[in-house]
Amino acid sequence: MKKQWIAFQAILNKEVTRFVRIWSQTLLPPVITQMLYFLIFGKFIGSRIGNIEGVDYMAFIVPGLVMMAVINSAYVNVVSSFFSAKFQRNIEEMLVAPVSSWVIMAGYVSAGVLRGLLVGFLVFAVSCFFTRPVIHSFFMIFIFILLTAVLFSLGGLLNGIFSKNFDDVSIFPTFVLTPLIYLGGVFYSINHLPPVWQHISRLNPILYMVNGFRFGFYGLSDVNLFLSLGLLIVFIFGLILINFRLLEKGVGLKN
């Protein structure tokens, strides 16, 4: 057990060192991008929108933009690092060693979570230059951001396991993840949408994460919070089991 704990630390240390070493590619871009969102949507356009559900528009979009940065960073960190290790074949260093599949998964996912949380914190810090978000429930903020980072790190790992080339790495984030995030209530409340779009929006899992996170700040949510937490936990357990099974079988890793 102690040996596996040391192996976990080795993977985590390697991964964190990697994303910190290339901070200008991993930490800076999301902060710059989100800053532009604050400027354009918050400052320039937001001033014409006014309040949403009693909250200043600039402050309203802060949780969504932080969540967007967390989701992207956690996902991309794991998928790119895991695929890169496969591509360069240094994943074999781990496969020939007595590292369990649980530890491989935990190491990569923890690194993804750490990068996601670090980027989220930086984006939140930048948002404080534009507005002053209030905190309704620190616990809800923490639990939603942590579980979301875990979920999308696991998703990144799944993508990394199946990826055979660089196109496979970017297809899901570009064509599925990004639209779901934009349509997940980051910039608006679904209560302002026509009923049919409200129903369609409720099929988007990211809506529940953004709203849960936003509840932590302002006590506002378009959806049931218990349903949000339940969905997150179910998806996380599902992805843990799927990833573990794939790693055990060596799918995408062994011949």
Partner: peptide, 10 residues
């Protein structure tokens, strides 16, 4: 060092 870590070496 990382490789040693995979084998549980401090």
């Amino acid at each position: 060092i990382t490789q040693a870590g995979y084998y549980g070496i401090e």
